[in-house]
Structures are given as structure tokens and as C-alpha cells.
């Protein structure tokens, strides 16, 4: 059986690397997110470049994961090197199965793609969900179990503070405004008031303690950004 990989990139260097590293694969190239979405293959494996002409690779991954037809694709994202754990975490959070800083070591890259394809063929397509847990150094957060701990000490968060923490974890490195937090976390629009967001974030920072609480930064006049 010939292994097929859909390659979404406009970069000649990335294309050349893929052709060399994936000899024997059937490669289909798409120069933009738009071209790939028009084809929207329902299965197989897609290698997606981080910066496409019309969309970021991680946004494209989120779109593909959210659609019934494409959610079962195996997604491999590549980012511009050097390797960044934060960039990798965002890609995984958006549904990536693999993440490589470019250029990856060709044999390792090929082996992991072959494994990924083998698993998806053997087990059948499994829907990708949000990560079961987030771990950063001593901080461990499990959205499903609704538990958060630093080391062995459980954090005593209110339901709202917990939801706020998970929202930040899922949107690392992105500026989120207070009104968006009200809409997405409080789920009641503006009724709760913008001040209640500030108060709750102060409480969350305090409970997280200095090493992690300080990662929730205020972007003056705009909102907040969470960077680990």
C-alpha cells in the first residue's frame, strides 16, 4: 500500500524537505489553506506548515478538527525552528497529532509519520479531543477531572476560576479581552461586569502563586495574555 501525505505549504524549502524525507509516499501538495479546504480530504495524514499565505497552520488545524468530515485526519504541524515548547503546546491544543520544528531530523520525521499512519489505519480514525490534561513544570490541570494541582498540593479553585484557568491554557500566547472572557467563560455576556473579570483574575493569580500567577499578564487597556 502506498502511504499518502497531504502537504500544505507554500514554502519551497519545506516542499523539498518533504519530497526528500518522504520518498515512497504519495505526496499531494496544496499551496494554501484555501486550496486544502476546497479538497478537504476525509482521512489520511496532512503535514501543515506553520505560516501559510492565507492562514496559520494552527488555525487551520483547529478548523479541520472542528469539522465532521476532516476531524479524523492525522495532523502534523511544522513550525519555524528553533523548537518552542509553547508553540508546540498551542499546536497540540488545536488538535495536532505531531509537531516538529523545521527542519526536523529526516529519519525521525519519517518514522513518526509512518507510525502515525499505521496507528490511524489499525485503530480506525479516532476523533481528536482537547488534551486530557495540561502539565507545565509542577502545574497539572485536568479539565475533565476538573482538578488542578501544583506539585502534590491541590489548588482550591472555584468553578469559575477553574474555567478561567483552562481557557487561558487553551489560548496561550493570545490576547484575550475581558469581554471575550465574559462571553466564553462566564457565558452571560456583559451582565457580570468587566470589574468582576479583573477581580477573578486577581484571585486566580493569588491562588496559582507567584511562579504561575505571574504568567497571566495584563495587557494595559486591552485584556490579558497567558504565556508560560
Amino acid at each position: 500500500m502506498t502511504l499518502t501525505a497531504h502537504c500544505v505549504t507554500s514554502d519551497a524549502g519545506v516542499s523539498a524537505f518533504l519530497k526528500a524525507a518522504l520518498k515512497g509516499f504519495r505526496l499531494k501538495f496544496y499551496p494554501s489553506a484555501g486550496a486544502f479546504l476546497r479538497a478537504a480530504p476525509g482521512g489520511g495524514l496532512a503535514v501543515i506548515d506553520a505560516f501559510l499565505p492565507d492562514m496559520s497552520g494552527r488555525d487551520l488545524a483547529a478548523v479541520l478538527r472542528g469539522d465532521q468530515k476532516t476531524r479524523r485526519l492525522s495532523l502534523v504541524l511544522t513550525g519555524a525552528g528553533p523548537y518552542s515548547p509553547a508553540a508546540a503546546a498551542v499546536c497540540f491544543d488545536n488538535g495536532a497529532d505531531e509537531y516538529f520544528a523545521f527542519p526536523p531530523e529526516p529519519r525521525l520525521f519519517r518514522a513518526r509519520l509512518v507510525n502515525l499512519l499505521a496507528r490511524s489505519c489499525a485503530a480506525g480514525p479516532a476523533p481528536a479531543e482537547k488534551p486530557a490534561e495540561y502539565r507545565f513544570k509542577a502545574l497539572l490541570v485536568s479539565p475533565e477531572a476538573r482538578t488542578a494541582q501544583i506539585g502534590r498540593a491541590a489548588l482550591k479553585l472555584t468553578a469559575l476560576e477553574f474555567d478561567l484557568l483552562v481557557y487561558f491554557l487553551r489560548n496561550q500566547g493570545r490576547v484575550v479581552s475581558r469581554s471575550v472572557l465574559l462571553e466564553q467563560v462566564w457565558r452571560q455576556g456583559m451582565e457580570a461586569g468587566l470589574r468582576s473579570v479583573d477581580k477573578r483574575i486577581e484571585a486566580l493569580r493569588y491562588k496559582l502563586g507567584r511562579p504561575f500567577g505571574s504568567k497571566i499578564k495584563t495587557v494595559f487597556g486591552l485584556g490579558y495574555i497567558f504565556k508560560l
Binding site: G34, A40, D54, M55, D59, G66, T70, G173, R174, V180
Partner: peptide, 24 residues
């Protein structure tokens, strides 16, 4: 972020499609 919406936007000749919340 629905696929059909994104595809329609890009089909309109958009130079880009950025999902909120976005990376500055």
C-alpha cells in the same frame, strides 16, 4: 471557525483568515 465559513471567506479572495483569539 467552521470549515464552510472559512472556505467561503478564502474563496472570496481573502488575503488571510485569522481566528480569534489571535496571536498579536
Amino acid at each position: 471557525s467552521e470549515l464552510d465559513m472559512v472556505a467561503e471567506g478564502l474563496k472570496l479572495g481573502a488575503a488571510g483568515y485569522v481566528l480569534k483569539p489571535f496571536d498579536p
